[in-house]
Structures are given as C-alpha cells and as structure tokens.
Design a binder for these strands. Structure first.
Lengths: 264, 264
DNA sequence: TATTATATCTCGGGT
DNA sequence: ACCCGAGGTATAATA
C-alpha cells in the first residue's frame, strides 16, 4: 500500500532522465521529497533574489510546500509556502525544478547539478500538536483571576470588538471605570503601548467615555515606559512562568494558597 | 578530506548504539544531518509544547540550527534557531535527541523510534545570496527621484534619527515645509499610519514645527485611509514592480523617457 | 478575499 | 546585551 511504503533512497543519482521521472511520480503521489545537491536558485514574485551555486537541502512536502535550506540557520534561503505546481525537467547541465504559486504569481527556480542524494516517500504524521502558554491562555487565566491585575477589578468580556479590532480583556475597576487590557507574552515595546492607546481612543470615540488602559507583560522596554507615561496608560508586570505553573497545578481557590500568594 | 567527503547514507538504521555514535561524531564535526523517522517532540522554554508520535524530517545544521518538520507546511513544528549543545543517546525504545539553547534556557527533546533514514555530511555552500526590492532599495530609488512622491520635493536625509526611532526619508516640499516619509513595500495598514504619526509627533516635539507626513505604499487598507484622514496625513501610491524594473533598466535621465513617464 | 494580530516569530543593525 | 523594525515574513481567526 502506497501510504506505508518505505522511504526510497537514491544515494548516487546519475541517470538524469530516470531521476526526473522518479521525482515527477513522487510529486504526483504527494510524497515527501528530500534532495541534497549543488544548485543555483532564482526567485521572482513579491521581490527578486538570486542565489549562487552551493550545496543545499531541498525539501518538497506532501502539500506542495517547497523549502531550500542552506547548511546554516533556521530559515530557508528560498521557499514557497504552498505551490500551485512543481515542474521537474532535465537540462543540459542537470535538473531544473520550478515551483509556482499562482495566487501571488511567485516562482522559485532551482538549477541542480551534481546531486548527492535523493529520498522520497509518504510520511504518516497524525500526531497531535499542543502549544501551551500562548497569549490566549494567559488571557484566560487573567479573566478568571482579575485580582492579579488589580484589587477590585472585574472582567466582563474577552476579545471585545471595537470598530478597529478587538480588545484582549475588557472590564471595570473598583470605581466602576471601564478598563481595557492589552496582553503581551514577551517584552512590551512602544509598539504595544500604541496598540493599547488606539483601543483606548477608539473606545472613547465610540462611547464618549475615556477608559483606563493597562498593558500587561512580563517586561517593558524603556521606550514603552516613556510612552505609557506620556499617554496616561498603566502597566502591570506579570510572571508568565508562574502564571503557567499555577494553571498547571490547577490550584483550587479556598483550599490551600490563594492565587495571589502563589504568584508572590 | 573531511570537508569534501560524500554524504553518508544509512538507509536501514538498526544498530542503535552504533547510530548514536555516528550521530555524535557527525555533530562534533559540524556536519549537516538529516533524520527521517517516527518521533515524539517536547519543547520547553519561552512556551511549552507536546507533539505526539508521527513521521517527521529532522534536520541538524552545521551551525547547530535544529529543525523538526512535519510532512506539510512551510514552518517547522519544533525548532531551535541556534543551540548550545545537541545531545544524543539511546534509550530503551530508540534514540533521544536533546537540543539546548542556553541564552533562552530552551530545550527541544525528540524521542525517536523507528528510524527510516539517516544521512549526514559536510555541505559546502559559499554561494552569494542577493535579495532585490526590499524596503531599503525602494527608499534609495525614491531618494534619488523625489519627483515620484511630489513635484518640487527634495530629500535631505535617509534614516534620519529621532528620539523614538528613524524616519525612512526626510526632506522638504516645494514650499519648504519639512516632510517625513514612511515606506511600506506591502499593503499599508492602520498600523503603518500610526507609525508615521508617531514620527510626525516626535518631530514636532523636538523641533516645534509640525512636519507633513506621507505614507508611501503600493496599497492601503480602508482603515489606513481612515486613519490618514483623521490624523491629517497624506499617502502616495507607488507601483513597486515598475519602480523595480525602472531601476533594473537604469534609465538615464534626459535620454529617453523621464522617470515619471516610465512610471505612468 | 481582505484585515488584523500573534509568533518559542527570526534576523540584522544599531547603541 | 537590549532595543527596534523589516520580513518574499507565515499562520490563524474573523468579517
């Protein structure tokens, strides 16, 4: 059965014509393909790039994702997140692979000569991926525990819609003043302050009342502090790892430590 | 010579102890390594993630970059842009690879069982990469040809420093009013408008004169238009591909078409 | 499709 | 080391 076939290895590719046929079949069957070899790469679309000859790792994935990796660094040097078609043909010097993306009219062309290795096969990967501790999760903990932000705080809405976008958390402080909370899971920059400020202003324009704005983050840059001050906004520093371990341990209120004790 | 050795292929890995030794040597020699096999992955650091069993492509690059790719999509499901060390050992069930990054205290742990393929070797890649048509290049063309922006415009500075950052282009219009230009190579959003607005305000605070602000982009979202209007800023639509082909053809002024004719 | 905001963003440049 | 902004960002959610 095709879905469970072994990974086919060509360790000394030499018959170009045959290789082209094999690659075409592998692409048609939506297999994962790995090619290692010397190549030049040309990109044209949203910009234009040229990559001179060198040895690289080329990956064609089962959904048509196309990656060309240099032997260093996290990022591919050229790529195509999804392709409309991938065309393979042999040339005088070697093999040419063209990956085309229709919606953005982008083309990646690889000129391969001297191939060190080709491998292909169907990979079966249904394993579930879970990411914890993203902004959403932090937001939910704060929603349940407004006392972390401020005594007497209560939240009434998550992702409250305004004309210009949505607010992470919305509620009222002990004096009944509306409060807009913007959350960052990494260091808050001036940029984040202005994002919060836009929401505060949009709220004021819509409801005629200026709400308080609180920026929640584990850290703040100096310019963020300056902008908060200048725009009359507040900040609340949180320890995300503590928030996280708190959530993991699922502390029951009333029984044992309170959440504020836990976070202290 | 190690640098030019062939890519070593193990198409049916079975002796775990031997494989662990080979991988360790390959890592020590800073080779590129590709492993295809069934694995689980655990990440902990800036966040936390779990990936259940499935077949993936694992890449260890020569600088320690570590990537785990599922058979679909552009992005790796787990990764480490640069690692302090990569440790390999065999367990009861298979092989365990731990990639650790000291500066951010991040760990990726891969539990491999059933390896379909291992390949490693030193890849030589010195080929130069050039990217054309990034924001810098657009900026330089506009700097040389202020008439594209507006009749009578002249630029005096690129990347002019203000307290809060630097302005893409700075100059004066036909009436001698200071002008701040912010460039976007993709659709300008409300975000970009506010970025420009911040620069305009910072300039006013510093010099006591309110400059004009012009946002240059190939396209503008409706909310960008609204924000430009509300904040008293202007826009200038440019065709980036035309700018680019113009630069490529290196049109000499006076001889043949003028740049404005070319862009029309 | 367009818009918006997140990301374990990465990466490079500046201070 | 931090800060800042660009990216062929990609990606998911939402209108």
């Amino acid at each position: 059965m095709a879905d469970y076939m072994e990974f086919k290895i060509i360790s000394k590719p030499n018959n170009l014509k045959e290789i082209v046929e094999e690659l075409r079949r592998a692409i048609a069957k939506q297999m994962s393909i790995i090619i290692i070899g010397k190549c030049e790469v040309y990109y044209k679309g949203r910009g234009e790039s040229k990559l001179k000859e060198g040895e690289r790792i080329i990956i064609i994935k089962q959904d048509g994702a196309f990656l060309i990796h240099r032997p260093i660094g996290y990022k591919p040097v050229n790529w195509q997140p999804d392709t409309s078609y991938i065309r393979v043909q042999h040339t005088d010097h070697g093999i040419e692979i063209i990956a085309f993306r229709k919606k953005s009219q982008e083309t990646v062309k690889v000129l391969l000569d001297s191939i060190k290795f080709i491998g292909y096969g169907k990979l079966v990967d249904t394993g579930k991926f879970v990411m914890y501790l993203d902004e959403l999760e932090i937001r939910d903990v704060l929603y349940k525990h407004p006392e972390i932000i401020e005594d007497g705080m209560r939240f009434t809405e998550k992702e409250k819609k305004l004309d210009i976008g949505s607010i992470d958390l919305f509620g009222y402080d002990r004096d009944g003043r509306p409060v807009i909370v913007e959350i960052k899971r990494v260091t808050a920059t001036r940029e984040a302050v202005h994002q919060l400020h836009r929401y505060v202003e949009a709220y004021r324009r819509k409801y005629g009342v200026k709400p308080r704005g609180i920026l929640v983050a584990p850290k703040f840059t100096a310019s963020a502090d300056e902008a908060l001050e200048r725009l009359g906004l507040k900040k609340k520093e949180i320890n995300i790892l503590k928030l996280w371990s708190m959530k993991k341990k699922s502390i029951e209120e009333g029984k044992g430590k309170s959440i504020l004790e836990f976070l202290s």
